[in-house]
């Protein structure tokens, strides 16, 4: 049902970088690209993103698998926007006007979104959620939020199994999903039962945690420290981005 953390268990340069630094870089670079409107700058970042993916030793197969939902969205945009965008007409298809601005806008969104997702994939998808939670805690994200994230993540698989069980039970009793009130009612009761079981399980889990001395502190077995390699990597990437942007703005004004 859910992708596992296969990318997290590889060995590469990116995997050696401190997780806090990786999260920081992912956030910084993503917003940097998202806020830019310069086509040349974004195209450069697009190439850079592929360099990072390569450094993280992610295979093309993994990239394609993870970009699939994005491609569906991009396809929709490419069909809709050139038709509905106002601007200079380029050509006409079946009496629909295709505008140049629409096509430019689509191209911009396509490159931006792929770039940001590749950044995310190479920096964040290469760590387990457990490590991510710990790194977030070190980056001063509120402890309660981190707790919520890790706990939710932990129980998604348990509740997922619970759902499979309920759905199997419905199927064995001859349930076939159709477009009618009976189907919707069945799904509503399925979802409802899922929440009821989740709530009852939460009670038991909470009691078990209290018995083991839970006091709100979340301990972790992942240990990592800020090493030289991470700091150097962080500085090099940021310097590169700054110089690159400066070059594009100041020098390469064609």
């Amino acid at each position: 049902m859910i992708e596992n953390e296969e990318l997290a268990f590889k060995d590469s340069l990116i995997h050696k970088i401190n997780p806090c630094i990786r999260i920081l870089l992912a956030v910084l670079l993503s917003f940097w690209v998202a806020l830019s409107t310069d086509f040349k700058f974004i195209s450069g970042c697009f190439v850079l993103a592929f360099v990072f993916v390569f450094l993280a030793s992610i295979t093309p197969n993994d990239i394609f698998k993870r970009l699939k939902p994005l491609f569906v969205f991009l396809l929709m945009i490419w069909i809709l926007l050139p038709l509905t965008f106002e601007g200079d007409m380029v050509f006409t298809v079946f009496s629909f006007d295709i505008s140049r601005q629409g096509i430019e806008y689509c191209a911009m969104i396509t490159i931006k979104s792929i770039t940001i997702i590749l950044f995310f994939m190479s920096f964040v998808a290469t760590m387990t959620i457990g490590v991510m939670g710990h790194a977030m805690q070190k980056l001063n994200v509120p402890q309660k939020f981190v707790f919520l994230l890790l706990m939710t993540y932990r129980y998604i698989f348990v509740i997922g199994e619970e759902y499979q069980k309920l759905f199997r039970a419905a199927k064995i009793r001859g349930f076939v999903s159709k477009t009618n009130i009976h189907s919707y009612k069945t799904y509503a009761y399925l979802a409802g039962m899922l929440f009821v079981r989740a709530s009852m399980r939460a009670k038991r889990v909470h009691q078990a945690m209290i018995c083991r001395g839970f006091n709100g502190q979340f301990h972790t077995i992942d240990k990592f420290s800020l090493d030289k390699l991470s700091i150097i990597f962080f500085i090099i990437v940021l310097l590169f981005m700054t110089i690159y942007q400066w070059l594009i703005v100041k020098v390469l004004i064609f």
Binding site: T152, S177, Y187, S199
Partner: peptide, 28 residues
């Protein structure tokens, strides 16, 4: 987060997982 105390947080986390799973249900 201010409204959640540590007595309720487990309940909220596990209900969130249930919502995550339930939002993957597809109806015709």
């Amino acid at each position: 987060l201010k409204n959640i105390d540590y007595d309720k947080i487990v309940n909220i986390a596990i209900l969130s997982s249930a919502f995550f799973v339930a939002s993957l249900i597809h109806v015709n």
